[in-house]
Write a protein that binds this DNA or RNA. Structure first.
Lengths: 220, 220
DNA sequence: ACCCTTCTCCCCCGCGCGGCGGAGGCGGAT
DNA sequence: ATCCGCCTCCGCCGCGCGGGGGAGAAGGGT
């Protein structure tokens, strides 16, 4: 028997939502809703007692939110259940928080009943999951640093680039001169050029521009 | 009828893998493997012709890799299929690349047949998906900036924090004074305190420290 | 009561910084 | 041969910046 009954706990402060979820899951013979909770704190204790396979956790709940409840469940139990976080909006900042808390999945309330059931089965059985558009956006944000190169970056000369990087290292003009093996006056010229091209009025603003432009990526 | 047959295309350079996948999917009445491809280029043309609902795409393939094939499929077709990337190792750098390319899912070859089937159904039916440990790691990397909070951050007073943020905005002491509604001398005091606590010797280094500490997160 | 922290403001001083204009050499483009 | 961009260096000047030291008021902790 590879598939014993999957035991599910529902955590949502709205009774209607719980009822709806229960109705959907009850139609599946291999799924069983063993408990419910209306608050985050309640969810933690219910899960601790009933030891379900999967928890459907609402994010917005009184007292203790779904994220914190998830943290506690995954942090304190030995063989914690898989937690699927349920929310309304995909662009929610909760997506990120849910990931951090260790949730195995992320589900929209507008999801079809079909998808809900599939998702529960999937998280219960496997550590090989999938990701939503929001997570993709997260990766995009990761990649965004590489894209969106401000126009002034390309117009910097080699020397000016070196100077800007050293400026971003917190060095004074004199130190930069020593590091580059040139005169202090030369550095001042380069700095002036950098300020002009970046539109900065002092070295601090130039360094800020460098950071915002991701100009320091790959040198650290 | 909410579930017409889900049409699947397999792309993998190893015939054995394709056979195995086909066997698994053939056992399900609602899934139909309509085509196969042994290279990335072949995958693109096959998908273009057959218009499947889901593509199971291997990452490592001759000539054109699965990632690039995914990019082309999702970039050039009007109503592209969902692409599930299949690989052997979870810690693969491909996870990230797959996300970037726009894949809807990520699947391990060692996944149980059960999980594979569930995953295919899930991606075919919904835009509400789930994520694996590797993606969680991606988010962690994202969070890493927020974690590792340098000790000096907590020791900043409220006022000093405000000043540091304005410094990081490129403002001069005078401007900060105006913005905060206090005297210039007061700002100098706060700035001095910030420099002492951050270990910076000038405002530029302080701003650098603020960036490195992720101190500007959430204020943009 | 006392102390400690925080926020507020003041003085003076030295200096690095940035703006200004100028100049010489060197390489590539035409 | 000419021009232009880049790198190199020079002076002068004003000012914002940072160091040093001090001081008063408000609030909380003991």
């Amino acid at each position: 028997m590879t598939s014993p009954t999957i035991r599910v706990v529902l955590a949502d402060d709205e009774r209607m939502v719980r009822t709806a979820l229960r109705a959907i899951l009850a139609a599946e013979p291999d799924l069983e809703v063993v408990g419910e909770a209306a608050t985050g704190a309640e969810a933690v204790s219910v899960v601790r007692e009933l030891r379900p396979d999967v928890v459907l956790m609402d994010v917005r709940m009184p007292e203790v939110g779904g994220i914190r409840a998830t943290e506690q469940i995954l942090g304190t139990l030995d063989a914690p259940p898989r937690v699927v976080v349920v929310t309304t909006f995909e662009n929610d900042a909760y997506v990120y928080e849910a990931l951090r808390a260790g949730a195995s999945g992320f589900l929209l309330k507008r999801a079809e009943a079909d998808a809900l059931v599939q998702a529960v089965r999937l998280v219960a059985r496997s550590d090989t999951l999938l990701f939503p558009a929001a997570v993709r956006a997260l990766a995009m944000e990761h990649a965004r640093a590489k894209t969106a190169p401000p126009p002034w970056v390309a117009r910097l000369t080699v020397r000016e680039g070196e100077v800007l990087r050293l400026m971003a290292g917190g060095l004074t003009n004199g130190e930069i001169a020593g590091r580059m093996g040139v005169g202090a006056a030369t550095v001042k010229s380069h700095v002036a050029a950098v300020l002009a091209k970046t539109g900065a009025r002092d070295r601090t603003q130039a360094v800020i521009a460098a950071y915002e432009a991701g100009f320091l990526k790959g040198w650290a």
